[in-house]
Protein backbone atom coordinates (compact mmCIF):
# COMPACT_ATOMS: atom_id res chain seq x y z
CA UNK A 1 0.00 0.00 0.00
CA UNK A 2 1.36 3.41 -0.98
CA UNK A 3 1.70 5.65 2.09
CA UNK A 4 3.48 8.62 0.53
CA UNK A 5 3.09 9.74 -3.06
CA UNK A 6 4.39 12.89 -4.70
CA UNK A 7 4.38 13.90 -8.33
CA UNK A 8 6.21 16.87 -9.80
CA UNK A 9 6.27 18.44 -6.34
CA UNK A 10 7.69 21.94 -6.39
CA UNK A 11 8.33 24.50 -3.69
CA UNK A 12 9.83 27.94 -4.15
CA UNK A 13 10.63 30.69 -1.65
CA UNK A 14 10.95 34.37 -2.27
CA UNK A 15 13.82 36.28 -0.73
CA UNK A 16 14.53 39.98 -0.96
CA UNK A 17 17.99 41.32 -1.73
CA UNK A 18 19.26 44.88 -1.34
CA UNK A 19 18.18 47.64 1.02
CA UNK A 20 17.36 50.60 -1.23
CA UNK A 21 16.89 48.82 -4.55
CA UNK A 22 15.04 45.83 -3.20
CA UNK A 23 14.76 42.92 -5.57
CA UNK A 24 12.69 39.80 -5.14
CA UNK A 25 14.53 36.59 -5.86
CA UNK A 26 12.96 33.17 -6.24
CA UNK A 27 14.74 30.24 -4.60
CA UNK A 28 13.78 26.78 -5.80
CA UNK A 29 13.80 24.42 -2.80
CA UNK A 30 12.03 21.49 -4.51
CA UNK A 31 12.12 21.06 -8.25
CA UNK A 32 9.68 18.40 -9.47
CA UNK A 33 10.07 15.66 -6.88
CA UNK A 34 8.46 12.26 -7.56
CA UNK A 35 8.28 9.80 -4.66
CA UNK A 36 6.35 6.65 -3.85
CA UNK A 37 6.82 5.04 -0.43
CA UNK A 38 5.12 1.86 0.67
CA UNK A 39 3.70 0.84 4.04
CA UNK A 40 6.32 -0.59 6.42
CA UNK A 41 9.29 0.91 4.58
CA UNK A 42 12.19 2.62 6.30
CA UNK A 43 12.87 5.13 3.58
CA UNK A 44 15.98 7.29 3.65
CA UNK A 45 16.46 10.66 2.01
CA UNK A 46 20.09 11.65 1.60
CA UNK A 47 21.47 14.96 0.50
CA UNK A 48 23.81 17.80 1.37
CA UNK A 49 22.67 20.85 3.34
CA UNK A 50 20.14 22.85 1.31
CA UNK A 51 19.21 19.88 -0.90
CA UNK A 52 15.51 20.20 0.03
CA UNK A 53 15.22 17.35 2.56
CA UNK A 54 13.64 19.42 5.32
CA UNK A 55 11.34 21.18 2.85
CA UNK A 56 9.88 17.93 1.58
CA UNK A 57 9.56 16.57 5.13
CA UNK A 58 7.63 19.66 6.22
CA UNK A 59 5.34 19.50 3.22
CA UNK A 60 4.52 15.84 3.82
CA UNK A 61 4.04 16.55 7.54
CA UNK A 62 1.46 19.25 6.61
CA UNK A 63 3.36 22.21 8.08
CA UNK A 64 4.35 23.74 4.76
CA UNK A 65 2.37 24.13 1.55
CA UNK A 66 3.85 23.15 -1.81
CA UNK A 67 3.95 25.73 -4.59
CA UNK A 68 2.69 23.19 -7.15
CA UNK A 69 2.46 19.48 -7.85
CA UNK A 70 0.80 16.59 -6.03
CA UNK A 71 1.55 15.37 -2.51
CA UNK A 72 -0.49 12.63 -0.87
CA UNK A 73 -0.15 10.87 2.47
CA UNK A 74 -2.33 7.78 3.08
CA UNK A 75 -3.91 8.56 -0.30
CA UNK A 76 -5.12 11.95 0.99
CA UNK A 77 -4.13 15.30 -0.44
CA UNK A 78 -1.90 17.05 2.11
CA UNK A 79 -3.88 20.30 1.84
CA UNK A 80 -7.46 19.01 1.67
CA UNK A 81 -6.96 15.98 3.92
CA UNK A 82 -4.95 17.69 6.65
CA UNK A 83 -7.44 16.87 9.43
CA UNK A 84 -7.35 13.16 8.61
CA UNK A 85 -3.58 13.03 8.08
CA UNK A 86 -2.32 14.85 11.21
CA UNK A 87 -3.54 12.31 13.82
CA UNK A 88 -1.83 9.50 11.88
CA UNK A 89 1.65 10.99 11.49
CA UNK A 90 4.47 11.81 13.89
CA UNK A 91 7.04 14.52 13.27
CA UNK A 92 10.51 14.64 14.80
CA UNK A 93 13.06 17.32 13.97
CA UNK A 94 16.74 17.04 14.77
CA UNK A 95 18.47 19.44 17.13
CA UNK A 96 17.45 20.79 20.47
CA UNK A 97 14.45 22.90 19.45
CA UNK A 98 10.88 21.66 19.52
CA UNK A 99 10.41 21.04 23.23
CA UNK A 100 9.21 23.13 26.17
CA UNK A 101 12.44 23.58 28.09
CA UNK A 102 10.85 24.82 31.28
CA UNK A 103 8.75 21.70 31.62
CA UNK A 104 9.85 18.23 32.61
CA UNK A 105 10.18 15.44 30.06
CA UNK A 106 7.02 13.84 31.43
CA UNK A 107 5.06 17.13 31.24
CA UNK A 108 6.17 17.61 27.62
CA UNK A 109 4.85 14.16 26.71
CA UNK A 110 1.64 14.74 28.66
CA UNK A 111 1.01 18.06 26.90
CA UNK A 112 1.53 16.60 23.42
CA UNK A 113 -0.65 13.60 24.40
CA UNK A 114 -3.44 16.10 25.08
CA UNK A 115 -2.82 17.98 21.83
CA UNK A 116 -3.01 14.67 19.93
CA UNK A 117 -6.22 13.88 21.85
CA UNK A 118 -4.82 10.66 23.32
CA UNK A 119 -7.35 9.40 25.91
CA UNK A 120 -5.98 9.95 29.46
CA UNK A 121 -6.04 6.23 30.35
CA UNK A 122 -3.99 5.46 27.21
CA UNK A 123 -1.55 8.33 27.86
CA UNK A 124 -1.11 7.17 31.45
CA UNK A 125 0.10 3.81 30.17
CA UNK A 126 2.00 5.01 27.11
CA UNK A 127 4.08 7.82 28.66
CA UNK A 128 6.03 5.50 31.02
CA UNK A 129 6.43 2.97 28.19
CA UNK A 130 7.92 5.60 25.87
CA UNK A 131 10.16 7.01 28.59
CA UNK A 132 11.40 3.48 29.21
CA UNK A 133 11.94 2.89 25.49
CA UNK A 134 14.11 6.00 25.11
CA UNK A 135 15.88 5.44 28.43
CA UNK A 136 14.63 8.56 30.23
CA UNK A 137 12.58 7.05 33.04
CA UNK A 138 15.03 8.17 35.74
CA UNK A 139 15.13 11.78 34.50
CA UNK A 140 11.47 12.10 33.45
CA UNK A 141 10.51 14.56 36.19
CA UNK A 142 13.40 16.95 35.63
CA UNK A 143 13.11 20.12 33.56
CA UNK A 144 14.52 19.37 30.15
CA UNK A 145 16.72 22.49 30.14
CA UNK A 146 19.07 20.29 32.16
CA UNK A 147 19.03 17.42 29.66
CA UNK A 148 21.95 16.62 27.39
CA UNK A 149 21.50 16.95 23.63
CA UNK A 150 21.13 13.18 23.26
CA UNK A 151 18.47 13.06 25.96
CA UNK A 152 16.50 15.85 24.27
CA UNK A 153 16.73 14.03 20.98
CA UNK A 154 15.45 10.82 22.53
CA UNK A 155 12.61 12.76 24.12
CA UNK A 156 11.81 14.14 20.66
CA UNK A 157 11.35 10.57 19.44
CA UNK A 158 9.08 9.76 22.38
CA UNK A 159 7.07 12.92 21.69
CA UNK A 160 6.69 11.96 18.04
CA UNK A 161 5.35 8.55 19.09
CA UNK A 162 2.97 9.71 21.82
CA UNK A 163 -0.12 9.14 19.66
CA UNK A 164 1.19 5.89 18.16
CA UNK A 165 1.38 7.21 14.56
CA UNK A 166 1.45 4.89 11.55
CA UNK A 167 3.98 7.07 9.77
CA UNK A 168 6.94 8.79 11.39
CA UNK A 169 8.94 11.63 9.83
CA UNK A 170 12.46 11.87 11.26
CA UNK A 171 14.34 14.91 10.01
CA UNK A 172 18.06 14.46 10.74
CA UNK A 173 17.35 12.90 14.15
CA UNK A 174 20.97 12.13 15.02
CA UNK A 175 22.42 15.49 14.07
CA UNK A 176 24.91 16.75 16.65
CA UNK A 177 24.77 13.60 18.77
CA UNK A 178 27.87 11.88 20.05
CA UNK A 179 28.56 8.47 18.40
CA UNK A 180 27.17 6.44 21.28
CA UNK A 181 23.96 8.47 21.56
CA UNK A 182 23.54 8.32 17.76
CA UNK A 183 24.00 4.54 17.81
CA UNK A 184 21.38 4.17 20.57
CA UNK A 185 18.97 6.32 18.61
CA UNK A 186 19.52 4.27 15.46
CA UNK A 187 18.62 1.16 17.47
CA UNK A 188 15.39 2.83 18.55
CA UNK A 189 14.59 3.72 14.92
CA UNK A 190 15.31 0.18 13.75
CA UNK A 191 13.09 -1.20 16.52
CA UNK A 192 10.22 1.10 15.52
CA UNK A 193 10.41 -0.05 11.91
CA UNK A 194 10.49 -3.70 13.02
CA UNK A 195 7.38 -2.95 15.08
CA UNK A 196 5.59 -1.99 11.86
CA UNK A 197 5.99 1.80 11.63
CA UNK A 198 6.63 3.34 8.24
CA UNK A 199 9.57 5.72 8.65
CA UNK A 200 10.68 8.60 6.45
CA UNK A 201 14.21 9.43 7.53
CA UNK A 202 16.36 12.28 6.28
CA UNK A 203 20.05 12.43 6.99
CA UNK A 204 23.35 13.45 5.53
CA UNK A 205 25.10 10.60 7.30
CA UNK A 206 25.57 7.93 4.63
CA UNK A 207 26.42 5.08 7.00
CA UNK A 208 23.23 5.78 8.95
CA UNK A 209 21.05 5.47 5.87
CA UNK A 210 23.07 2.46 4.68
CA UNK A 211 22.63 0.70 8.01
CA UNK A 212 18.94 1.45 8.50
CA UNK A 213 17.04 1.96 5.26
CA UNK A 214 15.33 -0.43 2.85
CA UNK A 215 15.32 2.20 0.14
CA UNK A 216 17.18 5.44 -0.42
CA UNK A 217 16.75 8.55 -2.50
CA UNK A 218 19.68 10.88 -3.07
CA UNK A 219 18.70 14.50 -3.41
CA UNK A 220 20.56 17.61 -4.48
CA UNK A 221 19.39 21.11 -5.32
CA UNK A 222 15.73 20.21 -4.93
CA UNK A 223 15.83 17.18 -7.24
CA UNK A 224 15.89 13.44 -6.64
CA UNK A 225 19.02 12.21 -8.42
CA UNK A 226 18.48 8.50 -7.88
CA UNK A 227 16.24 6.22 -5.82
CA UNK A 228 16.94 2.57 -5.07
CA UNK A 229 18.04 0.11 -2.39
CA UNK A 230 21.41 0.89 -0.73
CA UNK A 231 22.99 -2.21 -2.34
CA UNK A 232 21.76 -1.20 -5.80
CA UNK A 233 23.07 2.33 -5.33
CA UNK A 234 26.48 0.97 -4.41
CA UNK A 235 26.60 -0.63 -7.87
CA UNK A 236 27.08 2.88 -9.27
CA UNK A 237 30.57 2.60 -7.85
CA UNK A 238 30.92 -1.20 -8.07
CA UNK A 239 33.74 -1.09 -10.63
CA UNK A 240 35.64 1.55 -8.69
CA UNK A 241 37.97 1.57 -5.76
CA UNK A 242 38.66 4.41 -3.37
CA UNK A 243 42.16 5.65 -2.63
CA UNK A 244 42.25 7.53 0.66
CA UNK A 245 45.27 9.77 1.25
CA UNK A 246 45.56 11.50 4.60
CA UNK A 247 47.78 14.55 4.30
CA UNK A 248 48.52 17.96 5.83
CA UNK A 249 47.75 21.27 4.07
CA UNK A 250 46.89 20.19 0.53
CA UNK A 251 46.70 23.25 -1.81
CA UNK A 252 43.59 23.87 -3.92
CA UNK A 253 45.49 23.62 -7.24
CA UNK A 254 46.60 20.06 -6.43
CA UNK A 255 42.99 19.05 -5.74
CA UNK A 256 42.09 20.46 -9.16
CA UNK A 257 44.97 18.46 -10.73
CA UNK A 258 43.67 15.27 -9.09
CA UNK A 259 40.15 15.99 -10.37
CA UNK A 260 41.55 16.57 -13.86
CA UNK A 261 43.28 13.15 -13.95
CA UNK A 262 41.61 11.16 -16.79
CA UNK A 263 40.97 8.06 -14.64
CA UNK A 264 39.56 9.89 -11.62
CA UNK A 265 35.78 9.65 -11.25
CA UNK A 266 35.35 11.84 -8.17
CA UNK A 267 37.40 13.52 -5.44
CA UNK A 268 36.10 14.29 -2.00
CA UNK A 269 37.99 16.19 0.71
CA UNK A 270 37.12 15.45 4.29
CA UNK A 271 38.54 17.83 6.90
CA UNK A 272 39.86 15.95 9.92
CA UNK A 273 41.00 17.57 13.17
CA UNK A 274 44.55 18.32 12.06
CA UNK A 275 44.69 16.92 8.54
CA UNK A 276 42.69 16.35 5.35
CA UNK A 277 41.48 13.05 3.99
CA UNK A 278 41.50 13.02 0.19
CA UNK A 279 39.14 10.34 -1.16
CA UNK A 280 39.75 9.58 -4.84
CA UNK A 281 37.43 7.29 -6.81
CA UNK A 282 39.20 5.53 -9.65
CA UNK A 283 38.71 2.30 -11.67
CA UNK A 284 39.42 -0.83 -9.62
CA UNK A 285 42.82 -2.42 -10.30
CA UNK A 286 44.22 0.61 -12.13
CA UNK A 287 47.19 0.87 -9.72
CA UNK A 288 47.08 4.67 -9.68
CA UNK A 289 48.39 5.30 -6.15
CA UNK A 290 51.90 6.20 -7.36
CA UNK A 291 50.48 8.66 -9.89
CA UNK A 292 48.34 10.33 -7.24
CA UNK A 293 51.28 10.60 -4.84
CA UNK A 294 53.28 12.12 -7.70
CA UNK A 295 50.65 14.84 -8.12
CA UNK A 296 50.81 15.46 -4.36
CA UNK A 297 54.60 15.80 -4.39
CA UNK A 298 55.74 18.20 -1.70
CA UNK A 299 52.64 17.62 0.45
CA UNK A 300 53.23 15.81 3.74
CA UNK A 301 51.37 12.48 3.48
CA UNK A 302 50.52 10.55 6.63
CA UNK A 303 48.67 7.49 5.38
CA UNK A 304 47.46 5.88 2.12
CA UNK A 305 44.69 3.28 2.05
CA UNK A 306 42.86 1.62 -0.82
CA UNK A 307 39.38 0.32 0.00
CA UNK A 308 36.09 -0.90 -1.49
CA UNK A 309 33.50 1.83 -2.22
CA UNK A 310 30.59 2.44 0.15
CA UNK A 311 27.20 4.15 -0.18
CA UNK A 312 28.95 7.37 0.74
CA UNK A 313 31.16 7.03 -2.31
CA UNK A 314 28.09 6.46 -4.49
CA UNK A 315 26.63 9.62 -2.98
CA UNK A 316 29.82 11.61 -3.61
CA UNK A 317 29.90 10.43 -7.22
CA UNK A 318 26.22 11.18 -7.90
CA UNK A 319 26.11 14.56 -6.15
CA UNK A 320 29.49 15.47 -7.64
CA UNK A 321 28.33 14.66 -11.17
CA UNK A 322 25.17 16.73 -10.66
CA UNK A 323 27.20 19.68 -9.37
CA UNK A 324 29.47 19.55 -12.46
CA UNK A 325 26.40 20.05 -14.70
CA UNK A 326 25.76 23.53 -13.25
Amino acid sequence: MTIIFTENLRRTYQTITGIIRRKKKEIVALDGVDLSIQSGELFGLLGPNGAGKTTITRILATVLLPTSGTAQVFGLDIVKGVKQIRPRIGLVFGGERGLYWRLSGRDNLQYFADLYKVPPEVAKRRIPELLEMVGLTDRANERIEGYSRGMKQRLHIARGLIHDPELLFLDEPTIGLDPLAARDLREVIRGLNQAGKTIFLTSHYMFEIDALCNRVAIMNKGKILVMDTPSALKKVVANLEVVEIECFGIPEELILKLRAHPSVQAVNIERLEHSQLVQIQAPAGAELVKEFLGILEGVQVRKVVTRQPTLEDAYVKLVGEESKKV
Partner: peptide, 18 residues
Protein backbone atom coordinates in the same frame (compact mmCIF):
# COMPACT_ATOMS: atom_id res chain seq x y z
CA UNK B 1 11.95 30.48 19.17
CA UNK B 2 11.68 27.03 20.72
CA UNK B 3 10.61 25.48 17.42
CA UNK B 4 7.32 24.22 18.87
CA UNK B 5 5.00 26.39 16.73
CA UNK B 6 5.13 24.08 13.72
CA UNK B 7 4.92 21.02 16.00
CA UNK B 8 1.74 22.20 17.72
CA UNK B 9 0.33 23.16 14.32
CA UNK B 10 1.05 19.61 13.16
CA UNK B 11 -1.25 18.23 15.87
CA UNK B 12 -4.98 17.71 15.31
CA UNK B 13 -5.79 20.39 17.93
CA UNK B 14 -6.93 23.84 16.93
CA UNK B 15 -4.17 26.42 17.25
CA UNK B 16 -6.78 28.95 18.37
CA UNK B 17 -7.81 26.68 21.25
CA UNK B 18 -4.20 26.17 22.35
Amino acid sequence: RTGTLSLIMATPSSLLLI
